[in-house]
Design a protein around this nucleic acid. Structure first.
Lengths: 195, 195
DNA sequence: TAATTAAGCTAACAACTTTTAGCTTTGCTT
DNA sequence: AAGCAAAGCTAAAAGTTGTTAGCTTAATTA
């Protein structure tokens, strides 16, 4: 791992925890194990680190939601669907990188238009489009009743987003949150799955 | 309006726009129309302004969701329900004070436990409990099918929260957002209202 | 009317932050 | 071996920020 990558890594960690304005270049340097002025051998300035981080958040988004690879196999039963969905949520919730990007974006979303747009994509468009396709396929295969996949996707995903963001700030409630999420998903199945 | 109140007002506006660390006491003072050192006649320091603001956010929560007054009349028809709900959402979305508190909390939610807890209450508990009661009443009066009011409330409210937070950062999409919300609410009625 | 308090001001400190300048070392290339 | 570039360092400049000290003025109270 290059120093440049290490800087970005530690900067993201710190920005996620204390925000951009709450983080000094000195702190970043210290975590990396160098002195602050050495940062300037790799980046033009603090703002430049931020921009590189935004780029990497966009790349990360492309990797996660850009292709349709991540959809995986279409579930064939109710239990299959619940298990796959819960697994994805647990992963999203715990993966350190995804978690940091989420916390970073939520704090910096108002800084500029680009960040606002990326936040919307991460929080709304990405997951929603993904489940739109899954649900659509499951409607075709007759597991779900016929309805608007986009609406159903939003209804499935939104409570999860809200609960995951609660877990981001109050991790002590993680267990109850996971239970609530599962209850919600099962209820979703009760309503929209056939028989 | 006292100077102390004016300071809190302008501080909230600035914190909502640029975050706590992104706002200087000098900026606050300038907006109020005094010099920075004069702030210290009213507050012990910047942190103290912040704490007073958190107190007022808690008070505001109590006013909005503490009693059951705000529930108002229980809707008697589908159109009644849609209209009342859309009205409440439009108000929440546009009211400057509510909007500022929302933006302030979303940015500062990780600063300490108290802020985390208030954010959860504002974003999750408050609105959800409110609709839980409304839906419960509407189940009793036979307008909704019988189901878990807490789950239905979450399913009704979550997409709205997500969309309103999108509108907070990208107000240019407000029109589409309101349309999406209405579509969602009508779909919710289709699914959970009797015949 | 005299005294006191509240609330503003200017000046300035002290700490911190970001960034630059210039030096040194290390390792690679020719 | 010589030259060069990359990447670190120290010192310090330049600017900003939160805060304090001390003064002034206006309003309130005794």
């Amino acid at each position: 791992m290059t120093t440049k990558e290490r800087i970005l890594e530690e900067a993201l960690t710190l920005f996620a925890e204390n925000g951009y304005d709450g983080t000094g270049v000195e702190q970043i340097a210290e975590k990396v194990g160098i002195k602050a002025p050495s940062l300037y051998k790799h980046f033009k300035g603090k703002e430049d680190i931020m921009n590189a981080l935004i780029d990497s958040a966009e790349e990360h988004y492309e990797e996660s939601f850009g292709s349709e690879r991540h959809i995986g196999e279409i579930p064939e039963s109710r239990e299959d669907f619940v298990r796959a969905t819960m697994g994805r949520i647990a992963f999203t919730m715990h993966d350190p990188m995804i978690r940091k990007i989420r916390k970073f974006l939520v704090q910096e979303q108002f800084r500029n238009e680009r960040l606002a747009e990326i936040t919307t994509r991460h929080q709304l468009v990405g997951i929603q489009k993904m489940y739109e396709k899954i649900i659509e396929e499951m409607m075709k295969s007759g597991l779900f009743i016929h309805d608007d996949p986009a609406l159903l996707s939003i209804e499935l995903v939104s409570p999860v987003v809200i609960w995951v963001s609660k877990a981001d700030r109050q991790s002590q409630y993680e267990k109850e949150i996971m239970e609530s999420i599962e209850k919600h998903i099962r209820h979703f199945c009760d309503v929209y799955m056939k028989e």
